[in-house]
Write a protein that binds this DNA or RNA. Structure first.
Length: 222
DNA sequence: GGCGACGGCAGGGGCTATTT
DNA sequence: AAATAGCCCCTGCCGTCGCC
């Protein structure tokens, strides 16, 4: 095992980069921010990362106490990776970096991963526009299910089904991205069957307006 | 002597394909 | 899910050269 390169700098930033500064490391953390994932699910979220690099990054994150490996109870009985409390504390730093990054010119035409889209929702949420709004929602993106809640000027979203949601949106990452950042209309997506809504469609429509796209940077396929 | 450009070399790290 | 092999590319380091 070759020793890892280190900055050998007592600055907190350098020490953080010693842990999560390697290529792919922060994107692995991003994929785990909203709940545990199997190795194969992580690969889907990071399709251009090779297997051995992904395995190595996970091992390093586990060694650093940022993530842990856990076996699910039967019947699933598969191994999943999840953030530790220490690792979860990276969320605010990642959100700040993502906000900063979203103001730089978009140069990729690749599709967002589910977790990248959820992260984009968190980074662009407009608390002022949400003032006075309350609601619970369930987002079904393929096989991935998230529950989201707006209230008190805040926005929370995590993996898992919602309890008594006001509305449920069933769609794809591409369509949701168009609805939120691309100016597409919910009624149009419902009409062409790229989205299905049950419950309070108007409330869901208001929710989708709470994420202003950073000026002239984000793009869907527009 | 100081500086920048250039090339050679070694090691680190990432890739694909394959195996366990 | 993880490890391995073989290959390739990038980066850092060092020495050399030419110019001022």
């Amino acid at each position: 095992m070759v020793s890892k390169r280190r900055y050998d700098d007592p600055c907190g930033l350098a020490r953080a980069l010693d842990l999560v500064g390697e290529r792919w490391a922060l994107l692995v953390v991003r994929e785990l921010l909203h709940g545990p994932k199997r190795f194969t699910d992580l690969r889907q979220g990071l399709p251009t990362a090779s297997q051995n690099v992904l395995a190595q990054r996970l091992r390093e994150l586990v060694d650093a106490g940022i993530a842990r490996r856990r076996k699910l109870a039967a019947p699933a009985a598969s191994w999943v990776y999840e953030l530790t409390e220490h690792g979860a504390q990276l969320e605010q730093a990642i959100l700040a970096l993502a906000r900063w990054g979203s103001r730089t010119p978009l140069s990729s035409t690749a599709e967002l991963s589910v977790d990248a889209l959820v992260l984009a929702l968190k980074t662009t949420f407009d608390a002022k526009a949400a003032c006075g709004l309350r609601g619970r929602f369930e987002l079904r993106l393929g096989t991935e299910v998230f529950h989201a809640e707006v209230g008190g000027g805040g926005f929370r979203i995590a993996r898992g089904a919602a309890t008594a949601p006001d509305a449920v949106l069933e769609t794809t990452v591409t369509t949701l991205r168009s609805l939120v950042f691309g100016g597409a209309e919910l009624t149009g997506a419902i009409a062409d069957r790229t989205a299905r809504v049950s419950g309070d469609e108007a409330a869901l429509g208001r929710l989708l307006m709470l994420f202003p796209r950073p000026a002239d940077t984000l793009s869907t396929s527009d």
